[in-house]
């Protein structure tokens, strides 16, 4: 008799927990849906307002038309030329900025005198927009791909330097004690303590640098270029081909998202100890 009552209690308990679990899963699904819903809602709203002429379709052409334009441009092959050249400049400029920034940042983080020497320079140069230096960069390097890369590199450099130096400087003192107590010499200290310890904060800086690189390329290609996404946006705008211009803008937004995902994945691979 008693066992029967117990059984019923057990079954009830399982049923209650199962229901809770289902509820939790439904909530999770809702979260995913909301994440997808926000851009879809925006696009639908845009489409409707544009089609009904509530907003001016000349300035805000409906998204479906922009997609149509995208396929037309893609078919002609022109779009991919612009895209390819922009990507080449972005990646080149990004690496040109990030690699020296990481090196200088690590050295600044590890050696106090270096930090005190370079810190004021970094602080003073950071607020100068590299775009404002574009004319001088163009004079020195000409209207070449390299001048765009230099411009991007200049903008990417600063957030990465600052985050890398901060990353090293903020490593918990106890790990430095452990390294010293167990006899870590400079090279081992660099690769086993300083670099991995700084990595999480450093990658945040690189993530920021990536966004800045995209902001910079468009503006840089508007000024002194005959190709690239920025050039496409600018010439389309001047010719009042706004659908083409939107294709350019959306591509930039897409790449921003894509690079963010890529870096997020890199983060998972490079810092497996953080969950």
């Amino acid at each position: 008799m008693a066992t029967k009552v117990e059984e019923i209690y057990m079954e009830n308990s399982i049923a209650v927990e199962e229901q809770m679990w289902r509820k939790g899963r439904r909530r999770q699904q809702l979260k995913h849906m909301l994440t997808v819903a926000s851009p879809v809602c925006l696009l639908v709203l845009w489409e409707v307002l544009s089609r009904t002429n509530i907003i001016d379709a000349r300035f805000f052409p409906p998204p479906t038309e922009i997609i149509g334009t995208f396929f037309k441009m893609a078919a002609s092959g022109d779009l991919f030329n612009h895209l390819g050249i922009s990507l080449y400049r972005i990646i080149g400029g990004f690496l040109l900025g990030v690699i020296p920034a990481i090196l200088l940042g690590l050295i600044m983080g590890m050696y106090r005198p270096v930090r005190y020497f370079f810190q004021p320079l970094v602080m003073a140069l950071m607020p100068i927009p590299t775009l404002a230096l574009m004319p001088i960069i163009l004079i020195i390097f000409g209207i070449s791909d390299f001048s765009k890369m230099i411009t991007i590199a200049g903008s990417v450099f600063f957030p990465v330097v600052i985050n890398t130096a901060a990353g090293v400087a903020n490593i918990d003192g106890i790990y430095l004690d452990v390294a010293k107590n167990y006899g870590a010499k400079s090279k081992d200290f660099f690769f086993k303590i300083a670099l991995p310890g700084a990595l999480p904060v450093m990658l945040e800086g690189i993530q920021m640098g990536q966004a800045i690189a995209l902001l910079t390329i468009v503006a840089a290609e508007m000024m002194g270029a005959h190709s690239g996404i920025g050039y496409l946006i600018w010439t389309s705008y001047k010719a009042f081909l706004l659908q083409q211009m939107y294709v350019g803008l959306i591509l930039i937004s897409f790449f921003g998202y894509f690079f963010s995902l890529l870096l997020r994945m890199l983060q998972k691979v490079l810092i497996p100890w953080k969950k």
Partner: peptide
């Protein structure tokens, strides 16, 4: 807190010998 978070259990134990 003296265990280094970016090294695995094994690497932590081997740390002194490796250094």
């Amino acid at each position: 807190k003296g265990v280094i978070p970016w090294l695995t259990v094994e690497e932590n134990v081997a740390f002194g010998l490796k250094m």
